[in-house]
């Protein structure tokens, strides 16, 4: 009996066209992600890390190849089906946080539940938002606006938002890139704790100290993926 992976990429290629110039961001990528994995993706700038994460998070489509999510080929899905998958099964933490300035912390965290095609009851939303905020120790700042928070706090709000819909996988883009070492350490501890609790995490970073703390390692250079790289060489 074949094991069903959480996500499987099969011979994925991604090309960006800009006028007459074509840039191949990903070349023939094969990758499987299973429940409970904590994967780090590293590589030089422009190697294709963020493109890979966007494809894993169904934010972007592939030029060729297959993206199988929980056994379903996402290439065959409509926009709405892909939106539903993003909403229910994926938590995405953006490099620049992408919080909505007009909303306070509470509403930013509640957003995935509010935009959902199948909205939950307000009481349940409230419970879930408060729980996620307590996970990242921001319950006391629920009514603040994003611009009133520090970079580390904004990052934690983004993590809480990514967790609020109880996703199957957490995709994190450069979580420590904008933070000092103290805040970076704090964020990493949260991810480790989440992984110990059974969350699957896929993290893009170029900080090898944090990359090493993952359980599975991926290196990308010129769009080509290398599994379990030798960090000493890198």
């Amino acid at each position: 009996m074949q094991t069903e992976h959480l996500i499987a990429l099969e011979n994925v290629n991604k090309t960006f066209s800009g006028g007459s110039v074509e840039v191949q961001a990903l070349r023939a990528i094969d990758l499987t992600i299973n429940d409970g994995d904590f994967i780090s993706i590293t590589g030089p700038s422009g190697a294709g890390k963020s493109s890979l994460l966007a494809i894993l998070g169904l934010l972007d489509t592939v030029t060729s190849g297959k993206v199988i999510f929980c056994g379903q080929d996402t290439q065959l899905m409509s926009f709405d089906q892909r939106a539903d998958l993003r909403n229910c099964k994926i938590g995405y933490v953006f490099q620049s946080f992408n919080l909505i300035d007009e909303l306070n912390v509470y509403d930013n965290v509640a957003l995935p539940l509010q935009v959902s095609h199948r909205p939950q009851k307000p009481k349940k939303i409230d419970e879930r938002v408060k729980y996620c905020l307590s996970l990242v120790e921001l319950g006391h700042l629920a009514q603040q606006k994003p611009h009133q928070l520090s970079g580390g706090q904004q990052q934690r709000v983004a993590i809480a938002r990514a967790l609020v819909n109880e996703p199957n996988i957490l995709l994190v883009d450069e979580p420590t890139g904008n933070l000092d070492s103290q805040n970076g350490e704090r964020i990493m501890s949260i991810f480790e704790q989440l992984n110990r609790n059974g969350h699957t995490i896929c993290m893009v970073t170029h900080d090898l100290r944090y990359a090493k703390r993952a359980t599975k390692h991926i290196y990308i250079a010129d769009g080509v993926l290398y599994l379990n790289p030798d960090y000493a060489q890198i």
């Binding site: 926009f79 709405d80 909403n87 229910c88 992408n98 909505i100 957003l111 935009v115 095609h117």
Partner: peptide, 15 residues
């Protein structure tokens, strides 16, 4: 920008 975030978080076109 706000729409893009909501779309990334799973908001459908109808939403």
């Amino acid at each position: 920008h706000s729409f893009a975030i909501q779309a990334a978080l799973g908001a459908r076109r109808s939403y």
